[in-house]
Structures are given as C-alpha cells and as structure tokens.
Simulated scan of single mutants.
Amino acid sequence: MRLLAFLGVVLASALAFPRLGLHEGYTRLVFDLEAKTQYQIAQSPDTLTIRFQGIKVGAADVDVSSPQVASYQVVVASNSVTVFVRLKPSVEIKSVVLEDGNRRRLVVDVLASAQAPAKPNPPPKGLEPPRPRTQPKVVVIDPGHGGVDSGAVGFVVEKEVTLDLALRLRQLLQKEGIEVVLTRSSDTHLSPDKATDLGLRAEMANSKRNLFVSIHVNSAPNVAQGIETYYFGSVLDPSLLAQVIRENGGGELGRRLTQEAQSVGERLVRDLIAQSNLKFSRQLAHYVQGALVQATGAVDRGVRQAPFYVIRNARIPAILVEVGFANHPEEGRRLQTEAYRQTLAQALARGILRFLSNGE
C-alpha cells in the first residue's frame, strides 16, 4: 500500500517543476534543466531558495507536508524563475547535478538531521524569500469558480475576473514579504464535482496559514451594484439566500450545501475558539470592505454574515468578497478594464496588510 502511494506521488509529479519524490528519511526535488539554464541556491533557517535563468515553467503553490518539507512555491518573473521551498526544522540539504547530453537534472535532497543544522550563510542579494524569516505570514487567495464552472456571466465572466484579481493580488502581497498560496493559478477547477471542489478549497484554510480570502463577482436578476464582504455565520438575511445558494453550487446542490453550512454555523455558536476566529474574520472583512469602497467609490453594500460553504470550517480568519456585479451596465464594464482590476487588487492588499499588521 505504501509503495502504491509513493508511485502515485511520482506519477502525479512526472511533468511538474520540480518533480517530487517522498522517501524514507528524505524528500527529493528534481529540476529538469536545459544546458543553458543557470541557477543559484541559497538557504535560510526555514527556506531553501533556488533561482533559475534560461528556463520557462509555470507558477505553482504546492503543499508537500512531508517530514522534511512543508511546501514549495514557484514564482515566475519576466527573466527568471525562483523556487521557495519551505523547510521543516532540523533538516540538511544535499544537491547534485546529473548530466544527460544536452539536458541536466538538478537533484536536491532534503534530509532529516539528527542534529540541528549549522547556521547557514545568508542568501545572496536578491534571493531573499518573499516573506519575513521570523513569524512568516501566509495568505490563501481563492479565485472563485474556474474550469467547468464559469460563475456569474454578464459583461464579464466571473471565473476570469477572480483569477486576474488573485494573480494581481499575489504579486502585490509578495512584494510586501507575504507568502501567497492560490487555490488555483489558471482556468481550472479542483474537481468537476462542485461539492468536492469547494471542500478542497476550504481545506486550504488551515492553521498553517494566517488568513483566507475568497474572491467572487456578484449578479442579480434586478439592477444592483456595489461591493460587499462576508464572514461566516448562520444568520442569513432571506434576501441573500439566492446568492448564497448560487455561490455554493446552485440548484439542489447549492441548497444542500447551504443547509450543511448553516448547521455548522449553529454548532459554532457553542464553540468559544470558533467564536474568537469569527471575531477576527469580522475585523478582516471590515478592513477589506473599507479599503475597497474607499479606493473605488463603489456602492457600499456592507459587511455581512452568511453560510458560504467554502469558509464554513476555516480555522483561520476567512472572508468572501463580492467585488461587483457582472450584469450591471456600468459596474460590469468597469470590471472589464485592467485599470479598475488593479485598483481592486491594490485595495484588497491594503485591507489584508492592515489586518496582518494590526488585527492579530
């Protein structure tokens, strides 16, 4: 059984950068390189940083959760690719380059160490990880919908806007030293089954991260506009029911998931720890809502509670943001423009950074 699990990991990562192998006592990362590819390696106490030049790969955020490696992040810039590997305590790094004709393989092994590793040399200038080395902040950004699920469709398509905003927001937060995990980084779904898809997104709001923000675009049968931000709660304004059901999958599935989420909300009332988390979620929601309305001049639809399935079990402050209405003739057209999306992303970043500085 263990062998089958290992083979599953190898096959799943066969085309990945890096390819990942989990072994007894160590985690192996294999980088397939071209002959012209150059690289630099640097290590801090909790991060291994490898910068490549002369290679084209896609961005990625991957949880590893092996005994030696927590996760890795592939950050793509205009002329370089940087991989940040989050290390667990008491590990050692060994690397070797294997020549194979016109191609090379950089093999990096992260090994369990019986003794704490010696203090590493500081990384070369320009290779610092995109987060503070002490008390690192990790933010999960969830671009709503994706793949088979387009979300709201009007003057814009929801899944396209949410992904664009998430990518812009990731770049802004990384510049401030925040590590960002995206639930998706392309037009994909986590599962074609909506309940499974939402569940996989929700699982990323775990205690290893600092906060979770799900980004959405609204729609309404009547003419409506404005921005609103939600944190989880069982108290539901009847006028919001249709919207919550839609975001929870729509139709009979959406109604079922909404009922499940509401039952979670009823249990949270008796959980003091959960109540404390909801308090911080409410604070985060107010910071983000205030920043968005101030930056855009959009109608302020306020901060509310609702049983959105994707934030029902969050163990960290978690919110869902509706950045505007896809089918409003003015707001929908504003959402089409890069300038307005950048304004939204900058406002989201300001709200998040304010919370990380003051809210915890």
Rank of each mutant, 00 (worst) to 15 (best):
Q289K: 04
F232M: 11
S239R: 12
T196F: 06
D193Q: 07
T229N: 01
L284W: 05
Q275N: 13
Y287C: 10
A291I: 00
A242M: 08
Y230T: 05
F212M: 06
H216F: 06
S219W: 05
S214T: 09
A195Y: 00
S276G: 12
D271W: 06
Q262L: 12
K279V: 13
A285S: 14
Q262M: 13
G297Q: 09
S263N: 11
M204H: 01
A242W: 00
L198G: 02
V235W: 11
L257G: 01
V269D: 11
V293M: 07
G249A: 05
A261S: 14
E252K: 09
L253M: 04
A285K: 01
L272V: 13
S263W: 03
K194A: 03
Q283V: 11
R256S: 10
N222L: 13
K279M: 09
A285M: 06
T258K: 02
Q243W: 04
H216M: 07
E203H: 10
G297T: 10
Y231I: 04
I215K: 03
P221F: 07
G199T: 12
G265Y: 04
V235Q: 15
A291T: 01
Q225A: 12
H216A: 08
G199K: 05
G233T: 07
Y230I: 06
E247W: 01
I227F: 04
V244T: 10
I273K: 15
Q283G: 07
N218M: 07
R267H: 07
A261Q: 02
G297C: 10
R256Y: 04
L268C: 08
A202S: 15
T229E: 02
L268Y: 06
L198H: 01
E252R: 04
G265V: 08
N210R: 08
A291C: 02
T188M: 15
T258F: 04
H189F: 08
G249L: 01
Q262K: 12
H286I: 09
R270M: 10
P221H: 08
T196L: 09
V264S: 03
Q243D: 15
T229A: 00
G265A: 08
Q225K: 14
Q275S: 11
V213G: 06
F280H: 14
G251H: 01
A291E: 03
G199V: 03
Y287R: 09
E260T: 02
A205H: 02
Q262H: 08
Y231Q: 08
H216K: 06
S219M: 09
A285N: 06
Q289W: 01
Q294H: 12
K194D: 06
I245R: 05
R267V: 11
L278C: 07
A220N: 11
D271G: 10
L241Y: 12
A242Q: 12
D237F: 02
S191D: 13
E266K: 14
L268R: 13
Q225F: 13
G226E: 00
F280N: 11
L272S: 15
S214V: 00
T258A: 04
G226S: 05
N277L: 15
K194H: 02
P192V: 03
A261I: 00
V217C: 13
L257S: 02
S219L: 00
L211V: 14
S276V: 08
V269T: 14
R270A: 14
R246V: 07
L241Q: 14
Q259L: 11
S239D: 10
F232C: 03
D271E: 14
A274G: 15
V293A: 10
Q262E: 14
V244M: 04
A242Y: 05
M204D: 01
L284R: 03
